[in-house]
Write a protein that binds this DNA or RNA. Structure first.
Lengths: 199, 199
DNA sequence: TACCAAGTTGACCGAGTGGTCATCTTGTTT
DNA sequence: AAACAAGATGACCACTCGGTCAACTTGGTA
């Protein structure tokens, strides 16, 4: 592709340290965590942050890209699992678990018009679409549910409990179970609104 | 109760203007809306904000108290409706609708250790508990779902779509329908975690 | 109408923000 | 080992924030 020369080893290490520190700091302090604190946590000076990431928004987008890419690979791995319903549930479980650990749901909206983010998100949607279609064909989920629905609901179990002061670890599984039961065909009532089309 | 002398008429008017302006401003700009902008929108000086509300957090708590009180009265009104299942669904519809209009879900966590907020929240939990118990006894919702579950899930339909750039009005109804189907007894699978106890 | 407490104002403060840049350090290459 | 570009540094900048307060207005009251 592009003949970019590789990063110097110390620079590459600092970049990883910064990403990890930023994830932790955002998880603890929310979106308003400061660049200075992130730099301190990574053990570098503030200027180094801006050498690796043009702006704070760019740093956030980089984190989100990493998370979405992980989810994409999870979806791809489940694409030919024998039980399509179990495959979709497994994907949603991993998705919620990843988000639970670092509580990064809010970062996504903060970087929704970043080109890299939308690209990897579209890739995830494509892979997730395969899982949803297979689950629907197998009768594991109701026929009127779309990929967009699943993508939007993906974040819900963690969102539901994120206002709790000290939630039981794994409590999100309870709400994933309830929501997934709502996606099942048994006893499904007709949905009042057409499914959204993700941009 | 307390023999507090009533507010002067202009002060009372400014207080209402401030609360309304703050709701709008928070809805548009999120939690980081500035006190100065809120004052400008209300047509008063910044100092006036702090005469009515000790801190920005206090202002937020006042808004949240108002919302929770409204929900409490809605729950109370549904307490003796003929169809307990429909009554609970109606409450959740009003709750989501109220939140949809001003997108205030995030304000709740910002004021969770305010005494007034917890007081009115506990009152809401009590009234909502009546609705949930009646719905469960009538077989309208599954037996393993508690008030805490419903309270936590109450915000979910709006949360689900709040990352969309321009959601269809009423799209939240789609996700309320899915989630409510997940609360129904038909085809319910056992829940993997015990229900949380709200503090 | 005259008075005064209640209410309003906006300049001001210190703390903290994201971002810059001249200067210094260091990994890499020859 | 010499040389240099890539990278790291932290003082610095302009700006915004929540919050304060002395000076000024104004609504209620006797």
């Amino acid at each position: 592709m592009s003949p970019v020369r590789p990063l110097r080893v110390d620079a590459a290490r600092n970049r990883e340290l910064l990403l990890a520190a930023a994830e932790d700091e955002f998880a603890e302090r929310g979106i308003s965590a400061s660049v200075a604190d992130i730099a301190r946590r990574a053990g570098v000076a503030k200027g180094t942050v801006f050498r690796h990431f043009a702006t704070k928004e760019d740093l956030i987008a980089s984190i989100v890209v990493g998370h979405l890419a992980t989810l994409t690979s999870v979806a791809r791995r489940q694409a030919d699992a024998p039980d399509p319903g179990a495959a979709l549930l497994e994907f949603l479980t991993v998705a919620a678990d990843q988000r639970q650990q670092h509580d990064l749901t809010f970062l996504q909206s903060a970087s929704e018009d970043d080109a890299r983010v939308t690209a990897v998100r579209d890739e995830l949607l494509a892979c997730l679409g395969v899982l949803v279609d297979r689950a629907r064909d197998a009768g594991a989920i109701r026929s009127d549910v779309t990929v967009a629905d699943v993508f939007l609901l993906m974040c819900a179990p963690v969102h539901v409990i994120e206002n709790l002061s000290d939630p039981t670890p794994g409590l999100w599984k309870r709400y994933l179970a309830i929501i997934f039961d709502g996606l099942r065909p048994e006893g499904a009532n007709p949905l009042p609104q057409p499914a959204p089309s993700l941009p």
